[in-house]
Structures are given as C-alpha cells and as structure tokens.
Simulated assay, not measured.
Amino acid sequence: MITIKKAQPKSRSRRLSARARRAVLLVHVVAGVGWLGIAAVTFALTAAVLVEPELGVVRAGYEFHELLIGWLARPASLLTLGTGLILSVGTKWGVAAHHWPLIKLVLVVVTIAITASLAPGWIAAAQASGSQSVGAQVNLIGMAVFHVLTIGAATWLSIYKPGGRIRWNLPYPRRI
C-alpha cells in the first residue's frame, strides 16, 4: 500500500505573545525616553560648564557627566538596542523587512559607536585642562545635540513608520 504524506504547513517565525510584546515595548519606550532625557541633561550640563570660570566646578561637572554616561546613558542605550532587536524579530515588522526598523537600528548603533569611541577622550581632555579645552567642550555639546537629534529621529520613525516594506529580491534589469 502506498501512503501519501501531506505537505507540512510552512513554519511561521516565532512571534512574541501580546503580553510579552507589550512588556518588551514598555521597557523599550522607557529606556529610549530615559536615554533622550540623559542626552538633554548632558547637553545642559556641558553648556553650563562651558561658561564656568572656576576649574574645580568644571572638573566636578565633567565627573558628573561621566557618571551620567556610565551609569545611565550606556545601560539605557544598550537596553534600547536590545529591546528594539527583540521587538523587530518578535513582531511582524522584522529587522530588515521595513525601512523604519532598519533605519532605527542603524541610528542607534552609529550613535553608540560614535559616543563610545569619541566621548571618553573629549571628557578626559575637558577635565584635565578645564576652560583651556574649549574644543573638547564644544565637541561634547555637539555630541549631546547629536544624541538628542538621533534619538528624536528614532522616536519619529517609531510613530510614523515611513517607507513601507523593503523589497530585497528585486530582479536586476536585463540589458540587451
């Protein structure tokens, strides 16, 4: 006797349950808003320290700046990145199925990479020489503005979701 096997249904990718998605989304939003707030505070702090004439206050301001970055901004940025990846993989949006999650991922990774590579040197230079290191101080203000803009752009992308789906398998035009 011949038996015919039924075709197995296509396996769906694993998606988060509604409860898990909401929980991860809550953590993602809180971490992202926290990161934006920290960026705004570091902007205000760095701008205030820029015009401060007393070296002791300048050094204390940058020590506080380092504490904000190390204890709050880094964890918030990494938590935002991690929960964003979980949401991308665990929902219909995907990491690279739509334009906006991919752009958000690039914004977050670039912001973290630039900050991790440049900010420590600028903070050390600003702490060491105080008001003589105007260049490093201005760079730190620019870095804070950069953070506010990129995190704000990522927030905008989350709300408006522009661009639609990415069409990865477009055929190349044939030339005759």
Rank of each mutant, 00 (worst) to 15 (best):
residue 167 R to M: 14
residue 120 P to W: 07
residue 30 V to G: 06
residue 57 V to A: 13
residue 142 G to D: 11
residue 62 Y to E: 02
residue 95 V to Y: 08
residue 103 I to T: 14
residue 19 R to G: 07
residue 145 V to E: 07
residue 63 E to L: 15
residue 94 G to K: 00
residue 39 A to Q: 08
residue 73 A to S: 12
residue 162 P to N: 07
residue 18 A to T: 09
residue 51 V to D: 15
residue 23 A to L: 11
residue 154 A to Q: 03
residue 36 L to G: 11
residue 64 F to C: 04
residue 44 A to D: 13
residue 100 W to T: 01
residue 95 V to H: 05
residue 21 R to M: 05
residue 135 G to Q: 03
residue 107 L to A: 06
residue 98 H to Q: 06
residue 11 S to D: 10
residue 14 R to A: 08
residue 83 T to K: 06
residue 58 V to R: 15
residue 75 P to I: 15
residue 80 T to D: 02
residue 106 V to A: 13
residue 30 V to S: 06
residue 88 S to N: 04
residue 149 L to I: 15
residue 103 I to D: 01
residue 99 H to N: 02
residue 62 Y to M: 12
residue 7 A to V: 10
residue 2 I to V: 14
residue 17 S to R: 01
residue 50 L to P: 06
residue 64 F to Y: 03
residue 68 L to K: 07
residue 162 P to R: 05
residue 115 T to Y: 12
residue 121 G to H: 07
residue 41 V to C: 06
residue 116 A to F: 15
residue 136 A to E: 09
residue 166 I to K: 00
residue 54 E to V: 13
residue 134 V to R: 03
residue 174 R to W: 11
residue 44 A to S: 14
residue 151 I to W: 01
residue 78 L to H: 12
residue 80 T to W: 07
residue 150 T to H: 08
residue 153 A to S: 12
residue 12 R to P: 02
residue 3 T to R: 14
residue 32 G to H: 07
residue 108 V to Q: 05
residue 130 G to C: 06
residue 83 T to M: 05
residue 147 H to I: 09
residue 50 L to W: 07
residue 40 A to G: 10
residue 139 N to C: 12
residue 74 R to T: 06
residue 165 R to P: 03
residue 68 L to T: 04
residue 34 G to H: 02
residue 88 S to T: 04
residue 138 V to L: 08
residue 19 R to M: 11
residue 65 H to T: 08
residue 169 N to P: 00
residue 48 A to Y: 05
residue 53 P to I: 08
residue 93 W to D: 05
residue 32 G to V: 02
residue 147 H to K: 01
residue 94 G to C: 00
residue 84 G to R: 03
residue 76 A to V: 09
residue 121 G to F: 13
residue 96 A to E: 01
residue 63 E to W: 12
residue 28 H to I: 09
residue 100 W to A: 05
residue 92 K to C: 00
residue 73 A to M: 14
residue 161 K to W: 00
residue 91 T to Y: 00
residue 55 L to P: 04
residue 77 S to K: 01
residue 128 A to H: 15
residue 120 P to N: 08
residue 81 L to N: 03
residue 96 A to S: 13
residue 27 V to R: 11
residue 151 I to A: 06
residue 32 G to S: 13
residue 173 P to T: 14
residue 4 I to K: 14
residue 53 P to E: 03
residue 36 L to A: 08
residue 149 L to E: 03
residue 90 G to V: 04
residue 64 F to P: 00
residue 105 L to H: 01
residue 70 G to K: 14
residue 1 M to C: 11
residue 62 Y to H: 07
residue 96 A to P: 04
residue 143 M to E: 09
residue 2 I to G: 03
residue 160 Y to V: 15
residue 157 L to N: 01
residue 98 H to G: 00
residue 158 S to Q: 11
residue 75 P to C: 08
residue 100 W to D: 01
residue 84 G to L: 10
residue 156 W to P: 02
residue 53 P to L: 08
residue 11 S to H: 01
residue 35 W to P: 03
residue 164 G to L: 09
residue 13 S to T: 01
residue 16 L to T: 02
residue 117 S to F: 13
residue 66 E to F: 10
residue 118 L to R: 09
residue 89 V to M: 05
residue 48 A to T: 15
residue 91 T to G: 01
residue 80 T to V: 12
residue 108 V to S: 12
residue 138 V to H: 02
residue 68 L to R: 11
residue 108 V to R: 04
residue 30 V to T: 13
residue 66 E to P: 00
residue 96 A to D: 10
residue 38 I to N: 08
residue 153 A to L: 07
residue 10 K to L: 14
residue 65 H to V: 11
